[in-house]
Lab assay of single mutants.
Amino acid sequence: MDETGKELVLALYDYQEKSPREVTMKKGDILTLLNSTNKDWWKVEVKITVNGKTYERQGAVPAAYVKKL
């Protein structure tokens, strides 16, 4: 869990989004888990830093590609 009490997951593999509802992640990324009720796809929040600014993006990733921490 992070400092706000939200559950975290670890990306076990790289994943490139294939639709606007998904998010890209790299192996080793730590993501915030938002919903894991679907056994195949979990909704997560990814933090992306671009030019020193951090953005948050929500989307789905394959459940088999992440592990709860």
Rank of each mutant, 00 (worst) to 15 (best):
M1C: 15
D2S: 13
D2I: 14
E3Y: 14
E3K: 14
T4D: 12
T4Y: 12
G5K: 14
G5V: 12
G5W: 10
K6D: 08
E7S: 11
E7G: 11
L8I: 07
L8V: 08
L8R: 11
V9M: 03
V9L: 09
V9K: 02
V9Y: 05
L10K: 07
L10S: 02
L10R: 09
A11V: 09
A11T: 02
L12R: 03
L12T: 02
L12P: 00
Y13D: 06
Y13Q: 12
Y13K: 12
Y13I: 08
Y13E: 09
Y13G: 04
D14E: 04
D14A: 06
D14T: 05
Y15A: 02
Y15P: 02
Q16H: 12
Q16I: 14
Q16C: 13
E17S: 15
E17Y: 04
E17H: 08
E17K: 13
K18L: 08
K18V: 08
S19E: 06
S19F: 05
S19H: 09
S19A: 07
P20D: 12
P20K: 09
P20E: 12
P20N: 10
E22H: 07
E22S: 05
E22A: 05
V23S: 02
V23N: 02
T24K: 03
M25I: 15
K26A: 08
K26C: 11
K26P: 01
K27A: 12
K27T: 05
G28F: 03
G28A: 02
G28I: 03
D29Q: 12
D29H: 04
I30K: 04
L31S: 00
L31K: 01
L31D: 00
T32V: 15
T32P: 13
L34C: 07
N35C: 13
S36T: 09
S36V: 06
S36L: 04
T37K: 10
T37A: 12
T37W: 08
N38V: 04
N38A: 08
K39V: 10
D40F: 15
D40P: 01
W41S: 01
W41V: 02
W42D: 00
V44F: 02
V44E: 00
V44L: 02
V44D: 00
E45W: 06
E45A: 15
K47L: 12
I48K: 08
T49A: 07
T49W: 10
T49H: 10
V50R: 10
V50E: 11
N51G: 11
G52K: 04
K53W: 09
K53Q: 13
T54S: 10
Y55R: 07
Y55E: 08
R57Y: 07
R57M: 07
Q58M: 08
Q58T: 11
G59D: 00
G59N: 00
G59R: 02
A60N: 15
A60D: 15
A60K: 13
V61S: 01
V61D: 02
P62F: 07
P62G: 02
A64V: 09
A64L: 09
A64Q: 11
A64K: 14
Y65W: 06
Y65M: 12
Y65F: 12
V66G: 00
V66T: 01
V66K: 00
K67N: 03
K67L: 11
K68C: 09
L69P: 01
L69I: 13
L69R: 02
